[in-house]
Structures are given as structure tokens and as C-alpha cells.
Write a protein that binds this DNA or RNA. Structure first.
Lengths: 235, 235
DNA sequence: ACAAAAGTGTTTCTGTTACACCCATGT
DNA sequence: ACATGGGTGTAACAGAAACACTTTTGT
């Protein structure tokens, strides 16, 4: 039987991650310049190779850690890309992951070391190979997930204000929501806990901080927690 | 630079498809017994190897064609599975696809040749490797898609009755819908065209056949065409 | 005539949308 | 005092859910 396996052609397997971050204003993704290729000047997703004794998720975690120093990041498989000519150097299948992280957690020293940079989703540069396609898919999936699950919180710090949360959702869906309707909807899910601490410095009045109620958060009943399939008006 | 590529370990890439079919009553999936392994007696998904010069979708199409004789089947990538020990013979990454086909189109001569068999989703046998996990994911995605897009029609013959359509959706979601609400909702999408032909033999009264209005069907406005996120009562 | 499945309307209720003013604070 | 962003309620509307009887036809 080994023969049947040995006859088959093998292939390199790469992992590439679309790393989303939110700075309170805009939704961004983290891109790097790879030091190694002739396309030294081209921005690309963070990626690496699958090693012999690791699973795909494991490898994606490892690569993210190597690049950012972060562990326990929300990481979810998106899709495999396998056009035989996608990498001109050698046939490679790339398995893509989408990561959500709080920009404030991110270690800037590492950023500089590997020449990584956050880019606004609206002003992305040209990307390596088929990486633009990967980003487009990631955005699509992020939207789909964010309307079904309270997933967006991975992108926020532990304490956040309602205006921040609304900004985030507006950035994800590239639209505007009515403040009152948005607040009502979010509060009705009971996944938010109001603290009595106020944000200082940003606005004069200051907005109350909220935290995530993790009990409810994990509860599957928050499935479809926002019905954002028809938000006030999607552009 | 080639060095950097050549140092990396390569890996077999397999494709496995979860093939859904509907017989008017139950939702089924097509399984095969692979002739080649020591687990001759274990049912498994239809699968094959990625070849040197083909893309992933291309390979999935080819493998489906080789097994069933069918072309132009609805086929969509699900996910890659890459646990390093998932295939005990040799490290393999499997990219899975979900296929929807009309059981009546399926060629039974081929079926017998390769010892393939339709199994009710509710009575699946033990499956090879991690194939059960793959099936579970496929069902989950099928449900998600079927509530957002009028995808279920791929599973029906060209002419179908409203009761058949309802049976299909009930099978997908493993629940019951109210006949009147279901009919109203479906007809309101305008993707169905009533014919004046009636189904004979099954019921005494006979149900009218409908066909799919392909214009509307392709229209993206049918996005979220059924809001089946909260159907009458999901179990 | 009767059994078996097809077909059809109305009411209730819930959730979504649209909309405008006062509040708290820093300057 | 005023400018800036934070916070709040209500009415109209649309879509979902609940519900039962009549129709057709094969036996």
C-alpha cells in the first residue's frame, strides 16, 4: 500500500494569516515585507511553512507567535489556495487563517524587527501572489461571522466603550448604524457588563467602559446575536 | 532562494468530498469502500490525490467525475484537515469539498462498480480517519448556506413539488416547518415558477410541479432569502 | 364514502427602523 | 458659556409565527 502513497506527488504546504486589528477608528490588517524573495519590496501576509510534525492550526499559531510574540490569539481557518502557479518558485498549497487581535496587545518591537505594518483595509498596497484574494475572502468571512456571533470583541481591549464598539462594527461592515438602535441591540444580548469607570481624554463627557460577560459570550444562544443582515442601511 | 523552498518538508495533498443527495424523503451522503487499504471494510468519503498540475477545485472536480461520471456539479471548498497523524500510513493534508447533487442524475452503474452507497445522514456508519469530523462540518456549512442562499435546489430534480422542497429543507435543518408559512416564504422570493403539470402516483390529489427561475436564482438579492435562523421551532 | 395529501388566509406578535433632544464635562 | 461627543425613548412598520379547514382524487 505504501506504493500507492509513494507514487503520488508531494507538495509544499504554506500557512498565511490575515491578521485583523482595530485601533478604535479603522479596521486594519498586518502586513510584512518578506526578507527573502526577489520581491523584497512587495507586502505580503504573514506566512510560513508547515513542518513535519505539526497540525495546521498548530503551525498557524506558531507562525503568528514567531512574528508577533502573541499566543492564544483568535485564529480560524479560512480556506486552502492551490492554484498550481500561485507561487512561481515552486508549487505550494497555502492554507489561510484569519486572526483577530487587539492592536494594543501587539508588540511594536517585533513589528519593527520584521518590518511589519498595519494597513487600513481601505488603503491596501499591492500584495504578493494571490494574497489580495485571500484578504477579500477574509473580509467576507469576518462580516459573515460578525453578524452571527459576537466575534468582534476579540478586536477590542478588555474594557471598551459603546462608541468604540459601534465604530468597530461600522468598520467591519463599512457602514453607519443608528446609535440608539445599535446600543439597544447590543445591550439586549446581555453580553455586556457596564462598569462605573469612564473613558478619559477622548471626549469631554467621557463614555462608560463595558466589559464582556464571558458566560453569555460562550453561550450558543448568542448565535445570530445581531441580525446585521439588514442593518440600518448597508451602503 | 530555491534553497529556502527545498529545505521545507513536502506533504501529500488529498481531496475528499462530502456528497449530499436528496431522494425526496431524506438527506443522504454518498460513501465508498476504498478497495486499496487494509481497512477494506471501512466506509469513507470519495477522495483522491492532488496531481502535479492541477488546482484544488480542478482536482476535486476530476475526482468526483471519476467516481460518479458527473460534471458541473455544485462543489465548494470546506476546509483543510491536517492533523499529522490523521492518515496513519503517511502524512497527508486533506482539502475537503462539499458537493450537492440530484440523486436522480447519479449513475447507478458507476455506483455498483466502485461499491458506493447512499447513507441517510441519520444512520452513518463508522468512517475512515477523520471523515466523520469532515461530514459534521459539511452539515454545519450546508445549513448555514441553505438559510442564506437558495442553495438547496442543487439537490432537487429540475421539476419539483412544494412538498418535496419542504421535505428537503426539513431534512437539512432536521426540523419541521409550517406548510403555509413555508410556501408563502418561498413563493415570495419569486424564484419559483409554477407549471401546470402535476405529480402522479405519490399522493392522490397530486402536487403541482415547480421549476426554478434561474434569472432570479442568480440574483444576489436572494441573499438571506429565507430567514431560517429562527425557523418555526428548531429542535 | 373515505382516506391521504395538497392547498390556502388571517391574526398576533415580535423585532427593526426612523427619528431628536438633553446631558456631562473640558476648555 | 459653549462646544463636543455621550446617552436615552417612542411610534410606525414589516416580517415571522401560530393557527384549521376545504379541495382533489385514487381506492
Amino acid at each position: 500500500m505504501l506504493d500507492l502513497y509513494n507514487k503520488q506527488s508531494k507538495c509544499l504546504v504554506a500557512l498565511d494569516s490575515i491578521i485583523f486589528g482595530f485601533d478604535g477608528e479603522e479596521l486594519k490588517i498586518l502586513l510584512v515585507k518578506r526578507g527573502l524573495e526577489e520581491n523584497k519590496e512587495t507586502w505580503s501576509l504573514m506566512g510560513g511553512w508547515l513542518q513535519e510534525n505539526e497540525g495546521l492550526n498548530e503551525a498557524a499559531d506558531r507562525i503568528l507567535f514567531e512574528h508577533t510574540g502573541l499566543k492564544d490569539v483568535y485564529l480560524e481557518q479560512l480556506a486552502a489556495f492551490g492554484n498550481p502557479r500561485r507561487d512561481p518558485v515552486m508549487r505550494t498549497v497555502s492554507v489561510t487563517y484569519k486572526a483577530l487581535l487587539n492592536i494594543a496587545d501587539y508588540d511594536h518591537k517585533l513589528t519593527n524587527k520584521i518590518s511589519a505594518k498595519w494597513f487600513s483595509l481601505k488603503k491596501l498596497p499591492e500584495l504578493l501572489f494571490d494574497h489580495s484574494e485571500m484578504v477579500a475572502l477574509a473580509v467576507e468571512r469576518l462580516r459573515a461571522n460578525a453578524s452571527l456571533y459576537p466575534i468582534g470583541f476579540e478586536l477590542l481591549p478588555e474594557k471598551f466603550t459603546l462608541p468604540q464598539l459601534q465604530n468597530l462594527y461600522e468598520a467591519i461592515f463599512d457602514t453607519k448604524f443608528d446609535k440608539r438602535n445599535f446600543t439597544r441591540k447590543l445591550l439586549s444580548t446581555n453580553i455586556l457588563t457596564k462598569t462605573d469607570e469612564k473613558q478619559k481624554g477622548f471626549s469631554k463627557k467621557g463614555a462608560f467602559y463595558f466589559t464582556l460577560n464571558k458566560e453569555k459570550y460562550k453561550d450558543t444562544s448568542s448565535y445570530n446575536f445581531l441580525s446585521l443582515t439588514n442593518p440600518d442601511k448597508i451602503l
